[in-house]
Write a protein that binds this DNA or RNA. Structure first.
Lengths: 208, 208, 208, 208
DNA sequence: AATGAATGAGTCTTCATTCAT
DNA sequence: GATGAATGAAGACTCATTCAT
C-alpha cells in the first residue's frame, strides 16, 4: 500500500504503443479467463512482449486490471455523459435501448470489465470506486429523463446489472437478438413504470 | 476410469456428517472468495477436517463446487416448483416478490452459487446444465401466470439475472431494503409489461 | 526396524484365504505398475478387501512386497532344487532351456518379482537376501553340470539376468518365441563355453 | 497446446548452463532412486537451483527423464556408430568387450538410463522409441561382424540386456572385475556361437 | 530499455498409515 | 475381525514477482 508504485509512465511513442498493446492484451485475456485464471505470462505473450516489460509498466496484476477496467470506465462515463444530454428527449424504451447499446459498444474492454466486476475481491478499491461513479452517472442519465433524483439513484444499480446481463448471457451462448431485445424491454418497462406519470397512472403500480 | 472419479460416497453416519460440513464450508469459502481464489486447504480448515478427508469425498475442487452448486440448484428447483403452482393466483408484483424471496431464501448456498455462476469456465458442464434447468423452471413459473410459453422462455434469463443481482449488490454494500424493493419492482414491471393484457394493451410494447 | 511388526498371522481358514488373495492382488498390481506406482488402496480393491484388512496382515507396503517376492523366491528355489538333481544329465542347451522355463513357470509372481527387483531401493534387505539365495541356487545348478563351483558362482548372476530378461522383453512387446529361443541360446552357449571341455577345447576361448 | 509444452529453450548462456546442470542432477538422482522415487525438489537442490527454474526448462518430470535418457541415447548411438565401423575387424570376444565398454563409458548417464529403462511405464513413448533405435543400432553392429541381418536383429535385445546387466549388478555390490569379465564372456560366446561358422559348424546349435 | 532467467511461496492432489466403530 | 473414515506429510507443478545482463 505504501510501496504501491504505479508503474513507469511511458514518455516516448514506442512506450505508449507498448502500454496500449498491454492493456488490450490484458483485456483480452481477462475477458477470456477471468482475473485469477489469467496469467501475466500469457498476457505478455498476447502483447508480444517480454514479461519484464509488462512489469515495467504494470508492477502488479491488480494494477493492470485497474488499467483495463479504467479504460472501460472512462469510455462508459463519456458515453453516459453524452447520453444524459439526449436523455430528456427520449422515451423510456429509447433510453433503455440507448443504455444497452452504450454498454455493447465498449467492445474490447466491456467483457473484461464484466469479468473483473465479477471477481469477489476488488483489490485496491479502485475498481469499486469506478463502478460507483458509473452507477452514479447512470443515475444522472435516468434523472435526466424526468425521474426524481433519489428514485433514479435507487434504480441505477439494477439498471446497470441488467445492462451487464447482456454480455454475460451472450457468453453463455444465448441468442443475441433475443437477449438484446429482452434486456431493453426489461429496462424500458422498469423506467416507464417509475415515471411520475403525467397522464397514465395505470402501469406503474409497483414499489415497496 | 481414473479421471471420472466421483469421490467416495459415505456409508457411515460420521462420513455423512463430514460431507455435510464440507459442502457447507465449501459454500462459505466459495461465496467469500470465488472458485479460483478459494483454496482447498482453507475449505478443509473451515470444516475442521484434514485435507485428506476433503479429498476422500471430493477428489477435485470442481467436484466440490458441483456439490455446492447442486445443493443450491436442488433447493431452488424445489421452491420454483412450489411457486409454479401458486403462480396462477399471483399478480406480477406478487410473483416478482415471490421469485426474489425464493432466491433470498437459499441462505448458505445462494451466495456461493452466484459466485460460481460468475466463473469464466464451467468445469465439467454440470453447473451449466443445472443453470439451464433453473432457467427453464423459471420459464415455467412465468408461463404459469398466463404468459405464452415462448415469451416466458425468452424472459427467464433476464429475470434470473435480476434475481441474482440482489445478492451481488448486497455484497457491494448497498442497502438491503432498497435493493430488494427495486429488484422486485424491476421484475414485476417486466412481467406486467409482457402480459397478454386482457384489457389495456397500452403497457406491453416489447421492442424490436 | 525395532517397531517392525510382521503383521498378524492368520489362524482361521478365512484369514488364510484372505492373505492369499492379498498376496496375489499385490503381485498383480506390482507387476503392472511397479512398487512405487502401486497403491495399497488399489491392491486392497483388487483383493476385494477393505484397506484396513490389508494393513492387518501387512502393516507396510514393503512387507507386502516382501511377501510377494517371497512367494516367487520360494517357488523358484524349489524348482531350482529339483533342477539341480536333473542337471548332471543335461547338456548345456537343455539346462539353459530348463532354467528359462523355470522362470517362465512362476506365473503370477514372476512379473511382480522382476518389477520389485528393478526397484532402486530394497527396503529391509529381505529381498536382497532372497535374491542372493536364488543366485546361489543357480550357481549350484550350474555346478551340478560339472562346472567348477567358483566358476559357477561367477556365472550365476549373469545367467539370472538373462533369465529375467525374458519377461522384461516380453513386456516390451517382443515376440515370445524368438525371445525365448534367444535367451536359451545365449545361456546355453555361455554354459557350453565354460565347460572344462573334456574333448573339444575349440569353442570356449573367452574370459579375461 | 498446453499439454505438449516442451519447456523453454534457453537463449542465454546462463540458461544453457543451468539446463546442463539440471540434466546432470537429474541423471544423478534418477540413477540413485529411480524415476518414481526421485523428487523434483531433490533434483533442483542437487542442481543448486530453485524449483521454479527446473520447471522452466523441464515442465514435467517425464520431460526431464526424457532429456536425461536422450543424453545417454545420443552418446550411445554415436559410440555404436563408431563401433560398427570397427566391427568387421573384431572377433566375437573383442566385439563383446567393445560393446560392454561402450556401455560402461557413458558414465553419468548410463546408470540413470538403466534405472529409467526399468520403469514400468514409459511416459510419452519417447524413451521407448530411443530404446528401439539403440536396439536397432546394436543389431547393425552385430550384423557388421558378418552375422545375417535377421539373426543380428533377433540377438540385439538379449545382447543389450546383458550389457545393461553390468551396471545393474555392480549396483548390487558384485565385484567389478568379475562382472565385467562374465558379461563379456557371455556376450562373446553368444556371438561366436551364432556365426555362420566358415569352418567348424560344431558350436552353433541354436535351440527351438 | 528490454529481455529472459531466477525465485519460492503457495496450490492441488496423492497415499501410506492409523483410528474408531 | 472387518470396515470405512481420518490424517497429514510430501510431491508435482504454477505463477506473480524480482534480477541480471
Amino acid at each position: 500500500m505504501s510501496t504501491a508504485r504505479t508503474g513507469v509512465v511511458p514518455t516516448r511513442q514506442r512506450g505508449r504503443d507498448r502500454v496500449e498493446a498491454l492493456i488490450e492484451a490484458g483485456a483480452h485475456v481477462f475477458a477470456g479467463r477471468g482475473f485469477h485464471a489469467a496469467t501475466m505470462t500469457e498476457i505478455a505473450e498476447a502483447a508480444s512482449t517480454a514479461i519484464g516489460s509488462l512489469y515495467r509498466f504494470f508492477p502488479t496484476k491488480e494494477l493492470l486490471a485497474d488499467a483495463v477496467f479504467g479504460r472501460y470506465a472512462d469510455a462508459m462515463l463519456l458515453e453516459l455523459d453524452a447520453l444524459s444530454e439526449r436523455a430528456p428527449r427520449l422515451d423510456p424504451a429509447a433510453l433503455a435501448e440507448a443504455l444497452v447499446e452504450c454498454m455493447m459498444q465498449q467492445r474490447p474492454y466491456r467483457d473484461a470489465a464484466v469479468a473483473l466486476a465479477d471477481e469477489r475481491d476488488d483489490g485496491p478499491m479502485l475498481r469499486l470506486r469506478l463502478r460507483a461513479s458509473i452507477r452514479d452517472k447512470v443515475g444522472h442519465v435516468l434523472a435526466a429523463t424526468g425521474l426524481p433524483a433519489a428514485q433514479a439513484a435507487r434504480m441505477a444499480p439494477m439498471v446497470l446489472q441488467a445492462m451487464k446481463a447482456v454480455p454475460f448471457l451472450l457468453r453463455e451462448g444465448l441468442d443475441r437478438q433475443a437477449t438484446l431485445a429482452e434486456a431493453k424491454r426489461m429496462i424500458g418497462t422498469y423506467i416507464a413504470g417509475s415515471m411520475p406519470a403525467p397522464g397514465g397512472t395505470a402501469c406503474a403500480e409497483a414499489g415497496s
